[in-house]
């Protein structure tokens, strides 16, 4: 069944998901079937992705994926290594542009605008779709300058007071203010790993994005720092849409509302997190979450 082709418009999402359920039940027996099952589409999407294919040179990394990102949700992407989840994430703010051999086809819309349209500029796009990386990567500058950089280049503030305010609110929202308020001029690289990652999150939210992409943000952190970041993600959900790639199924279960399972360049299953983890529709998903491979 050509899901994506048949349901280009998602006027009846509930109906669709019921249909899919049935079909998914049948396809459970077919381990080779690589069609997305579950609920990839939502009523009020912030971002919509249709038929996304990514090629590195001649090699195809992502095969016709379609999925929506809802407002105020945390969408977790899980799957074994090399399944294309990071590549897909990077399509959402066109970070793949920097890879010379990379080619993206399909349609990604942010609030109805195709971000791959030739006249779209990546600079404002990335201000609206921010990104937090796997390894904390603060600039080798002061804590203050790290957060001030985004607002400065986008011209978000008129004077120093406004800038100071943005920095304070960003740090408060990132839960870092109490720890660093007395040493804003210290280098950001001098913080601990968990603090650095929260600094990077503060830096991202300082430019008031709509969507925050997180590429395994906790993989370089210890469990306590991870817990802090997870708390933070839960809080941030109230204002932003968050797409998070993670290797930890527990983390996906803890922080996300919906979970997408990727497998070797295919989007296998999308659904409410609880459902995916307790009652997966697809055999591959089940194999993965029960630890048969991965």
């Amino acid at each position: 069944m050509e899901l994506t082709a048949n349901h280009a418009s998602n006027a009846f999402p509930t109906m669709l998901s019921e249909e899919m359920l049935e079909e998914a039940e049948q396809s459970k027996t077919l381990a080779t079937a690589r069609k997305t099952v579950g609920t990839p589409f939502v009523d009020t999407p912030r971002m919509t992705c249709r038929d996304i294919q990514v090629f590195y040179g001649d090699k195809q990394a992502i095969n016709k994926m379609s999925i929506d990102v809802a407002s105020n949700e945390v969408l977790a992407m899980i799957g074994p290594s090399g399944c294309g989840k990071s590549t897909f994430l990077r399509c959402l703010n066109r970070m793949n542009d920097t890879v010379l051999s990379c080619r993206v086809t399909g349609e990604v819309k942010l609030d109805g605008t195709d971000i791959y349209h030739p006249s779209v500029d990546v600079v404002p796009l990335r201000a609206r779709v921010g990104m937090v990386f796997q390894k904390p990567n603060p600039f080798p500058k002061s804590i203050y300058d790290n957060i001030a950089y985004g607002p400065k280049i986008h011209g978000l503030t008129k004077n120093k007071d406004e800038l100071d305010e943005i920095i304070e609110t960003s740090l408060i929202r990132a839960g870092l203010w109490d720890e660093v308020k007395d040493r804003l001029q210290d280098p950001g690289t001098g913080l601990s790993g968990g603090q650095q990652q929260r600094l990077c999150i503060a830096r991202t939210i300082a430019v008031s994005p709509e969507v925050i992409l997180m590429d395994e943000p906790c993989s370089a952190l210890d469990p306590i720092a991870t817990a802090r970041v997870e708390e933070l993600i839960a809080e941030l959900r109230t204002q932003f849409s968050i797409v998070i790639v993670t290797h930890s199924m527990q983390q996906a279960a803890r922080v996300s509302q919906r979970t997408a399972y990727f497998h070797l360049g295919d989007l296998i299953e999308v659904g409410a997190t609880e459902k995916v983890f307790t009652n997966p529709l697809h055999q591959l998903t089940e194999d993965y979450i029960t630890g048969r491979f991965g």
């Binding site: 920097t98 921010g130 990104m131």
Partner: peptide, 27 residues
Amino acid sequence: VPPSIREAALGIGASKMQTVTHHVLPL
């Protein structure tokens, strides 16, 4: 210069030129 610095700058919407002049070149 580590690529993570370039990604960081690009990720918050610095243009290529800004990434180079503000971050890569000083390093």
